[in-house]
């Protein structure tokens, strides 16, 4: 169970209080008649799904109820930073590769 810092509450809370809400910083294109099928498909479905640092959305659903973003390493599941929805991804958080992990013996 992950331990997640809600940037609104300012507290580390257990994962079961939160709901993951998919990749972050995906802009909904519009207006509809100016968006191609390909752009719409990309918005709906295409994801970086990186092995390494990912910017993702969470909601503190059993807490303050608010959405926020996180940068997390998908190899180690360690959170690099969490920040409020609407704020840009902190530049120092990548996007970057995961710390090189040597093949485990």
């Amino acid at each position: 169970m992950l331990l997640i810092r809600c940037p609104w509450c300012g507290m580390d809370r257990p994962e079961i209080e939160f709901r993951h809400a998919g990749a972050a910083h995906i802009t909904r294109p519009g207006p509809p008649d100016r968006v191609s099928d390909e752009e719409w498909a990309a918005f709906l479905y295409l994801r970086d799904n990186p092995k390494g640092r990912v910017a993702e959305r969470w909601r503190h659903v059993h807490g303050c109820g608010r959405f926020f973003n996180a940068v997390r390493d998908t190899v180690t599941d360690v959170f690099v930073v969490t920040y409020k929805a609407g704020e840009p991804r902190p530049p120092e958080t990548g996007p970057g590769e995961s710390q090189p992990t040597e093949a485990r013996p």
């Binding site: 998919g22 990749a23 498909a41 990309a42 479905y45 295409l46 994801r47 970086d48 799904n49 990186p50 092995k51 998908t74």
Partner: peptide
């Protein structure tokens, strides 16, 4: 599970999450 990573090498974003 690593398809997105490999396809990324060919510049293709996939409708996948791992």
């Amino acid at each position: 599970g690593h398809t997105s990573v490999v396809m990324g090498m060919a510049g293709i974003r996939m409708p996948l999450e791992s």
